[in-house]
Simulated scan of single mutants.
Amino acid sequence: MRWPDLFARTRPTPSASIRYGDDQLQVVDLWLPTGPGPHPVALMVHGGCWQSEIADRRIMNWIADDLRRRGIAVWNIDYRGVDRAGGGYPGTFLDAAAAADSLRVHAARYNLDLARVVAVGHSAGGHLALWLAGRGRLPASSPLRAADPLPIAGVVSLGGLPDLEEAARAPGSGCGTEVIAQLTGGRFEDTSVPRLAPLGVPQVLINGAQDRIIPAAYAEGYAAPMRKAGDNVRVHMVERTGHVELIVPESDAWKVAASEIGQALGR
């Protein structure tokens, strides 16, 4: 499947949009299920090689709507990419963190269950979803460190780039080494997830065996050392699947992902 095949579909709309800052990209879309709740939450992070020109949160609308129909609330965050003023290091990370933490501010109003939050990220968003889960282990000297980050119970990465240092060494990463340099500023100690190991939460990496954008080998390349560090990391390699299918509701890959998200949330 190609991107135009997905974008040609009618795009579902969220229940509400909530600002966490003044920039036009500092916004979260809430997808709220029917019923009184309390609702478990998928904290959703879009990809696009950390570049706002390539993608924004709306690329996730179809799977967000699918989770909403399954009784799972979705907190679909946006952030300034490396190609926007204030993006890169540290802005992109601070945006993702602020968007995640703003869930606490609005949880009571929308009856969202803060004890059941799973981060779900696609492509570059897979990296940010894992990073959000590991924020509590950031070095004390890091400007990205927060005193009390939102607890995340697990992570589902969809075709993610989990190890920035590995991607920075490989021009075939799909995003390119220059973008990673803009994102990290060369500071892997607080931006690359393996440096934060063990995260202490279950992690599931779902990849398409025919993904031509993000090398499928990145999944096991990340999983092996994380397991050695003590983390519970599982990899699902889905055949006849590329990069786009990972966020298409009727795809085999999304069926795996939706099941994993439901299990992680105790559903």
Rank of each mutant, 00 (worst) to 15 (best):
L132R: 05
Q182D: 15
R195Y: 12
L199Y: 08
L138Y: 02
L196G: 05
P198E: 06
A115S: 14
G160N: 00
P162M: 06
R137L: 13
T177E: 15
R169D: 14
T177F: 10
D148H: 14
P139F: 12
L114R: 08
S192T: 09
P198L: 01
A153K: 01
I152S: 06
E166C: 13
V179K: 09
L199F: 01
S192R: 01
S157Q: 00
L132D: 04
G176K: 00
V201R: 09
L205R: 10
L128C: 08
L196H: 06
A170I: 13
L158E: 09
P202S: 09
R169V: 12
P162H: 10
A147Y: 12
R109D: 14
R169K: 15
A107V: 04
R169P: 12
W131T: 00
E178D: 15
P143A: 00
V204T: 15
I152N: 01
R109N: 12
I180P: 02
D113I: 01
A181H: 08
S157A: 07
L183N: 02
E165T: 14
G185M: 12
G172I: 11
L158R: 09
L199H: 01
G172P: 04
A167D: 03
P143H: 06
P202G: 12
T191G: 07
F188Q: 04
P162A: 08
L130P: 04
C175S: 11
A168M: 09
V156E: 03
R169I: 13
S123I: 04
T184C: 07
L112T: 00
L114P: 01
V118K: 03
G174Q: 00
S142G: 13
P198R: 05
V156A: 00
E165D: 14
